[in-house]
Design a protein around this nucleic acid. Sequence first.
DNA 1: AGAAGGACCTGCACGC
DNA 2: TGCGTGCAGGTCCTTC
Length: 287
Amino acid sequence: MPELPEVETIARGLDQRVRGDFIESVWLGSHREPLKSSAQEIAAALAGTRIAKVRRVGKHIVFDLEPKSSQNGVTKTQRAASLSSRNGGRQWIVHLGMTGRMLVCSPEEASPKHTHAIASLSSGRELRFVDPRRFGRLSVTTDRGFTGPGTEPLTVTADEFAKLFRGRKTPIKAALLNQKLLHGVGNIYADESLFRAGIRPRRQAGRLSRAELDRLHAAVKQVLKEAIRLGGSSVSDYVDAEGREGFFQLRHRVYLRTAKPCLVCRTPIKRLVLGGRGTHYCPKCQR
DNA sequence: AGAAGGACCTGCACGC
DNA sequence: TGCGTGCAGGTCCTTC
């Protein structure tokens, strides 16, 4: 389901709704797949903490947690000390996979099928993790500097961007999807960025000219920023933390438009499989 | 080491 | 109605 713009939208929504709330208890379902850390470890790390902030790193949602005790009548220094101590500064890392959702709901609402985790909040609400395909992952860490696997595409410079692809023989589309290089770009935004940059997905990454890489760098940023502004892409059932759909799917120029006329030159959009993923491009606009 | 391909899951749309 | 096929926003593991 979610790439960088969707995760950014969800994280912002969650931050608005649950920041400052306390996690009182945690229920975890019986499926093992979604849990990267052990169930006990996750439940123990979350229960009795305050949600200090919710943010996005790559395609991960990061809940910054602090011990409940650091709330009342504690000085700034004591709090800082507590945060850097062994018990402080925990983080709950959520990856939504393809179909994961984080929902804020009231306990009365029926839990949808495939609900794998429920955090009960002291405000009386519940934070629920729902994921039919179980590609999503939950984990906890005390590493406050969690940075994810690769470089942030929204802040990478043109020089750094160009360097990422140097010497790579893999197709540029596959390189864009490689989270160890750039993290956050997925199948939709890879296709859309390559279209806007006028570059064929199968071109060898290491053979792109600097001018092409600069165009791609600009296109990736432009596409991601525009998508964030529009709340992401709702392709099948994606909705944000408030249950609202995004609107960037209305701006897709190639993704899932196989055989439809290119919006620029009317040539039918082609589809091929690259790195196991459906890949869409205009054979005339992209060279 | 880098690259390619299958594995992991459920659900939906489609054609017969 | 029901069954088979192919497809879906992502990683992760194995093999070469």
